[in-house]
Amino acid sequence: MEKKSENSQKLIQAVIFGSVFGFLLQKGGVGKYHVLEGQLLFQDFTVVRVMLTAVLVGMIGIYFLHKKADIKMHIVPTKIGSNILGGLMFGSGFAFSGYCPGTGAVALGQGDVLATLCLVGLVVGSYIYAEASRYLKKTIDKWGAHGKLTLPALLHVKTGSVVAIFTVLLTGILVALAKIAP
């Protein structure tokens, strides 16, 4: 019973956090087709600005929350073959449809009803993956599988040092981008 109420509490949080996420993405303009395709064409850097700022702020907060409040991390295992091929496939689909899974939902919400086509494609593609999942787990998923790997572990450097370097690096990229592509 306690477990159930905790579960429903988390689902209520999901409603709130999800609404905020959709609200922010829409306000940021990243639910717009021309903004997303514009990023892939290097004509509009809104998407990269939103993402890098989110990573910068998120990284610093999560680092301290993990260190001081011991929050749980959610690292996806590294499978070099699947990460590269999956990333390329995703990128091609992103370019073809003009949306990604989150921004496609946002596009629908702001009234771009034809984004539904992309969303239907996402559902179909998910099922096709599920059909192939047993085979893929035995083959490509095994190529370059390293488990839950982080950059600090890979480089044998303290997490705090990597966070510090990335803070400077990401801020530098954002400042440089603001100068090159205002």
Binding site: L85, G86, G87, S92, G98, L119, V123, S126, Y129, L136
Partner: peptide, 23 residues
């Protein structure tokens, strides 16, 4: 291209373990 794009994205995201948000 919308349908194909969506399908490729979903397959790629599941293979890689996430999308532009999750990864």
């Amino acid at each position: 291209v919308s349908l194909l794009g969506g399908a490729l994205m979903a397959f790629g995201a599941r293979l890689a373990g996430g999308c532009t948000s999750g990864h």
